[in-house]
């Protein structure tokens, strides 16, 4: 079982967010990539775009499925990991650090609506049961 870092919060759709100094960094979990297989394209928003919590902010295409990405928090995009688009292997190799997707300035830094690592792992167990 992969370890899910305690410092991140999670969605049931397999996004993670980490809020530091009023900036939320968002990525997708190791589990999402295991489910999907090799990711071949990533479509991310532009800096300046704004998203409501749970709104679609991007898409990824794995070999056999296109999946939407959902914003764990609402806010404005302040940075996009452009490196990822040309180096998708980083997503699989380092989903928790170099494989981040976007950084946002959250409208609200509260993440109490999200799952903690333990809750996320439990949700995976339920889905697999």
């Amino acid at each position: 079982m992969a370890d899910y870092p305690d410092r991140y919060q999670y969605t049931a759709e397999h996004e993670w967010v980490s809020v530091d100094d009023d900036i939320g960094t968002i990525g997708i979990t190791h589990h999402a990539q295991e489910e999907l297989g090799d990711v071949v394209f990533v479509e991310l928003p532009e800096v300046g775009a704004s998203f409501e919590q749970n709104a679609r902010f991007g898409t990824i295409e794995a070999v056999k499925a296109v999946c939407d990405l959902y914003a764990p928090v609402s806010g404005e995009v302040v940075e996009v990991n452009k490196t990822i688009e040309d180096h998708l292997q980083v997503l699989a190799r380092d989903p928790w650090d170099k494989g981040w997707l976007i950084r946002v300035k959250p409208d609200d830094t509260s993440t109490s609506h999200l799952l903690d690592a333990e809750g996320y792992e439990a949700s995976l167990g339920e889905a697999d049961a």
């Binding site: 056999k64 499925a65 296109v66």
Partner: peptide
């Protein structure tokens, strides 16, 4: 891809998904 349906060593079905 290895999961595609084939006969006569040629691809016989296309398939794709969207998940959201």
């Amino acid at each position: 891809t290895p999961l595609d349906v084939a006969w006569g060593t040629r691809k016989g079905a296309g398939s794709a998904q969207r998940r959201r």
